[in-house]
Simulated scan of single mutants.
Amino acid sequence: MINKEEKSQIVQLVQNYFEDEMLEGIGNLATEQLVDFITDLVKPHIYNQALFDVNKTIKSYQSQLEDALFILEKPTRR
C-alpha cells in the first residue's frame, strides 16, 4: 500500500508530467484519481511478478543448499 507521503510525491510527478509533456495542467483530485486507477490496474501484475521472482530466487537458493549438502556427504565402505 502506498502511504500518504509517497502518494503525494507520485501525484506531483504525474502533474509535472502533464504540464511538461501534455502542455496542460491537471488538478490534484483528477491526478489522485488517475494514480488510484493506474495503481489498481497494475497492482495485480506487479504482485504476480514479485511472487514469480521470489519463487525463482528461492529455487536458486534451494539448489545451492542441496549442492552444499552433497559436499558434506561422507563416503561409506561397501
Rank of each mutant, 00 (worst) to 15 (best):
8 S>R: 10
1 M>P: 09
75 P>C: 15
9 Q>A: 12
7 K>D: 01
20 D>K: 07
43 K>R: 11
35 V>T: 04
64 Q>M: 11
52 F>G: 04
1 M>N: 12
10 I>T: 08
53 D>G: 00
22 M>D: 03
71 I>M: 11
17 Y>G: 01
3 N>D: 15
20 D>A: 02
71 I>Q: 13
57 T>G: 04
69 L>S: 05
4 K>S: 11
42 V>P: 01
58 I>L: 07
45 H>I: 07
40 D>W: 02
31 T>H: 02
56 K>A: 07
72 L>M: 15
1 M>L: 09
20 D>F: 01
12 Q>V: 04
61 Y>D: 10
37 F>Y: 08
47 Y>A: 02
18 F>K: 03
49 Q>R: 11
33 Q>R: 12
55 N>T: 13
67 D>A: 15
24 E>T: 06
38 I>Q: 03
12 Q>T: 09
22 M>W: 01
38 I>A: 02
30 A>M: 02
23 L>M: 13
57 T>P: 00
43 K>Q: 11
52 F>D: 12
62 Q>E: 15
3 N>G: 06
24 E>W: 00
9 Q>L: 13
34 L>A: 01
42 V>L: 10
1 M>E: 11
51 L>D: 09
57 T>A: 13
53 D>W: 01
64 Q>H: 08
75 P>L: 15
31 T>G: 02
29 L>E: 14
